[in-house]
Nucleic acid binder design. Structure first.
Lengths: 263, 263
DNA sequence: CGTCTGGTTGATACGACTCAAATTTGGTGG
DNA sequence: CCACCAAATTTGAGTCGTATCAACCAGACG
């Protein structure tokens, strides 16, 4: 019996908007900052699971902000291969300032049903001229995104299948916890084994066998779209997970809600 | 006999500073913009080959800008494995705005002897408040960096050794050409086979054999730190190289100097 | 000269892939 | 509530790409 079935729906531990939750990992926001965030997230839309929100080649018109649900950024090759290059969680911006570019070089799809805010370039510009604190927070957001992308490069280049998968699970758990959507080593986990394969550069078959190894070693439980990390510390060790690249240590409030390897 | 030995030194086709060259792939700069760039690049320093310029864990104090030479950003794992996650060429900034972060999550080293400008946060701030065009260009620079990082993720996740190496060679050639440091399918190429291994997630032995395949297929010549791409179009095809992610198509001047697959 | 770094070669091992099929799960409609 | 179907997961057998280990060679350097 999982927590999710007990509460019967959204697996959410705090009710504040995920964006604010995410940016506050960097700096405390003022009432006005929060109001400004609320203002630009009024124009929203829903995307069905497995549907593209943005396609490679599109001309970018908005900055997208994930309000709820999971998404993925992916690139495809002419021979049909596909690589998921990032996972979007609630509170994530999909490329601040994309509209500077002529064409998208990748696609973005929904993993679960997703609620996204569509922010115009004008709204973004207004934000960055009027709200320096938020602007700083957006820069932090982009720097962290870049750091995550580098860590994925390292993950694909140097870690074994076992380590890669373990690392990805820990990263997603820690990121979810930072926005109040995970706790006690449990979280929603809507990625299929196929998605995991596309994200780790493995085949689905090998992902399946490797997950069984992780289960067999007593590190995780994963079923019915719920992840339970049985021993976070050991899983971090086994996957050589070092949380520094998430840069959650900015103000004194670092890991404020919970220490990283406890709870 | 290579061009380099003929000119006896720097393999450079134009004399304007690489930064300006690079940013002008995005937008034409005014005289004042160029002056502002020149002003912030006065404080320079030299780094010897194979020396670290920045180390993981450091507190960032400056924005670094590569004036000349090649560098690499890399991450290491506790088991000793190492992944090069980016290559820096002349004109590249190493993380606009890094100083927002507490600690570096990676290291940066010189590949060749490198000349770098050290820019203070104050200088960067002045630039972004006084020179909107340059600020826009810096955003473009960062968006392109992010796109390159995603392409590397794709490269490591989905391409074979042969494709991976081919792709990397083409990328570096195209990037060099965009700053006027390559032409006629030739360029300086100071990376060792060890470096290539660290960048592609392969072993040096396998890089060696794969380069021999590329040579055997009549695609490249590579010796004495000089790369000659014998058939760019075929190499691009063989490595599934699509230049869209470099976003060199901004203004009408796209690929102004030379069409991408000719010359 | 000897030493070192970078490049090359050969033999062998193994991690991950491929192909193919069976089983389970979740959703849908009767 | 059950029958049905598609999607997701699981299992097995055989193959292949890349790693590993161990030499050896060439040129650069002090």
């Amino acid at each position: 019996m999982t927590l999710r079935t007990l509460v019967g729906g959204e697996f959410q531990f705090n009710s504040e908007p995920a964006v604010a939750s995410k940016l506050e990992a960097f700096t405390r926001l003022s009432v006005d900052d929060r109001a400004a965030l609320a203002r630009i997230t009024h124009n929203t839309r829903y995307v069905d699971p497995r549907r593209d929100l943005v396609s490679e080649g599109d001309r970018p018109r908005h900055v997208h902000l994930v309000m709820d649900g999971w998404g993925a950024r992916y690139k495809s090759l002419p021979d049909g291969k596909r690589q998921i290059v990032s996972i979007f969680l609630p509170g994530d911006f999909c490329d601040v300032n994309v509209y500077i570019l002529r064409h998208m070089d990748h696609s973005i799809c929904a993993i679960t049903r997703m609620k996204v805010a569509m922010i115009t370039p004008e709204e973004m510009n207004a934000l960055t001229t009027e709200r320096p604190r938020l602007t700083q927070a957006l820069w932090w957001h982009e720097l962290v995104n870049a750091a995550v992308q580098r860590e994925w490069t390292l993950n694909l280049g140097q870690r074994t299948a076992y380590e890669r998968l373990g690392h990805l699970l820990v990263e997603l758990y820690v990121r979810l916890r930072a926005i109040g959507r995970a706790n006690h080593n449990r979280c929603d986990f809507p990625l299929t084994q196929n998605d995991l394969a596309d994200a780790t550069g493995l085949t689905a078959v090998h992902v399946n066998r490797t997950l069984q190894e992780l289960r067999g070693d007593g590190l995780i439980e994963l079923e019915r779209r719920q992840l339970h990390i049985l021993d976070l510390e050991r899983l971090m060790g086994a996957s050589m997970f070092n949380p520094n690249y998430l840069h959650l240590d900015h103000e004194e409030q670092a890991f404020g809600r919970e220490r990283l390897t406890s709870g």
